[in-house]
Design a protein around this nucleic acid. Structure first.
Lengths: 153, 153
DNA sequence: CCGAAAGCGGACAAGACTGGTCCGATTTGA
DNA sequence: TCAAATCGGACCAGTCTTGTCCGCTTTCGG
């Protein structure tokens, strides 16, 4: 239940990797580092860039960079960037005409409270809560020295 | 995102109807009252009975009855009964072997906190919060007098 | 000035999953 | 004994997500 799309899961992993390195990283490089297929990583990055969570640098020496530190990214931001707005049911915000039983439906508009509760719970968690201690062996964020494409160090 | 299954939505509607009447009601009767197809209602009722939220009375004069008042039913109970346990990702509770990148994955086990937050938010809402004022014109729960199969009263 | 590298954007096919339906078996009241 | 209704399962169709690929644009290096 409450199926979070796998893309969102990937997004968190990629963002964590992005923060662990701290510099500009290419999609293929991130794919190798995370073990996710390259096209999929590219797709995730595209969505994240659209949502303003990462910045894409085009051109030969391009790549992706975090737009904000993970501590300033809410989990709900990531979810919205990947999966769209947070809503458990189609009947949100009093949208009419979506279900044919709306004249009978006894719970019309009541889900809003649930959505708000979920959204609130998700906004209480930053990506920093999901990533930090698992970063490989205390990497210095200010030192983008080692490429470190292989995570098994 | 956070797609709640439509079956769960139906379950809430059916449960609200069940409480509005207060007595023993048949699946076809509930279907007519809610506007949901009968087989679907039957399926929802089956799941709810499995979850212990409603009691099924077999036999000729059978039907379904609420096991508890809606105020004592948590939304998470309904979701668990219909959609299974609440978990946003497959990687919950430290299950290993589910994803091939678990050796690399930097966020292993971190989703548990998110799941708990969601579960907590959902456990704060009872079905009584989703249903009550929309019940058709102040029906007395102690009076199962009128069959009232048609909701357009 | 030109070629290579990398992001950007969309489209597209395959697979998984949910939604919805149906059938037989069982139980119970009339 | 018959009818009504639940129970339990299997089944099929539709939809959605997932994952991939292609061509275009942009920019750096030679």
């Amino acid at each position: 239940m409450l199926r979070l799309s796998k893309l969102t899961d990937y997004a968190v992993v990629v963002l964590a990797r992005l923060e662990a390195e701290g510099g500009l990283q290419t999609a293929p490089g991130l794919a190798a580092a995370t073990g996710i297929a390259e096209p999929t990583v590219a797709k995730v990055l595209k969505h994240l860039a659209h949502g303003g969570l990462v910045e894409g640098v085009r051109g030969a020496r391009g790549g992706y960079r975090l737009a904000r530190p993970l501590a300033a990214m809410l989990l709900s931001d990531v979810i919205c960037a990947i999966d769209g707005p947070i809503a458990l049911t189609a009947c949100v915000d009093g949208a009419s005409g979506c279900c044919e039983t709306e004249a009978i439906c006894a719970v019309r508009g009541r889900w809003d409270k649930v959505n708000e509760a979920i959204r609130n719970a998700l906004s209480d968690i930053t990506l920093a809560d999901l990533a930090p201690p698992s970063a490989p062996s205390c990497r210095r964020p200010t030192l983008p020295a080692q490429p470190a494409h292989l995570p098994a160090e």
